[in-house]
Amino acid sequence: MADSNDSPVMGKEFLKGLWKENPVFVAVLGMCPSLAVTNSAINGIAMGLASTFVLIGSCALVSLLRNVIPKPVRITTYIVIIATFVTAVDFTLEAFLPAIHKELGAFIALIVVNCLILGRQEAFASKHPIGLAVADATGMGLGFTFALLSLGGIREVLGNGSLFGIDLFGAGYEPWIIMILPPGGFFTLGFLLLIFSWVEQRRKLRTQQPS
């Protein structure tokens, strides 16, 4: 039943999560991990990828089972599916990447209640076939990872003078410690939201006034 216009639709569903409907910068979802674990670039990537894996896995499953799960118990079932993936990721990270697991700590388990993930099940995966659901989940997941990486990168460079653990400025640099403390998360997020909406506004203005 592959329609001829299947792939452009799929591409659109994939791309929207990266920029236009970015879960962090546009929808402002999943703030808890976005602020809490992004004090370094590597933590941002790890958290983003862990969430992406959970998102893709659970969206695929929810989409496959969308006609089987009775409506009154759908949220409960989604949470069971999501929690299963999260716990599996938790154990796997602890076994194979113990350093990252230690750093992310309790926030891995908290992926279960990340509203981005449950939101995608309810808003998209439960209403669309698996191909589109996976495209949507991948886009959203990568958009989330991109956002966490931007936050983590900026905070690590300013707050620790390094990026991915590599020293950038030498011993003469006095790091802005506040940037890796909780307030730094809010500053950076606010600043990035500002840039995002400014770019978006400029784009809208340009499309409204064709040259």
Binding site: V68, I69, P70, V73, T76, T77, V80, I81, A83, T84, T87, A88, F91, T92
Partner: peptide, 17 residues
């Protein structure tokens, strides 16, 4: 549905654990 979901989930989790 819920029992089945719980059962499958439990099976997966125990295996991973």
């Amino acid at each position: 549905t819920l029992s089945f979901a719980g059962f499958v989930s439990g099976l997966i989790l125990v295996s991973v654990y």
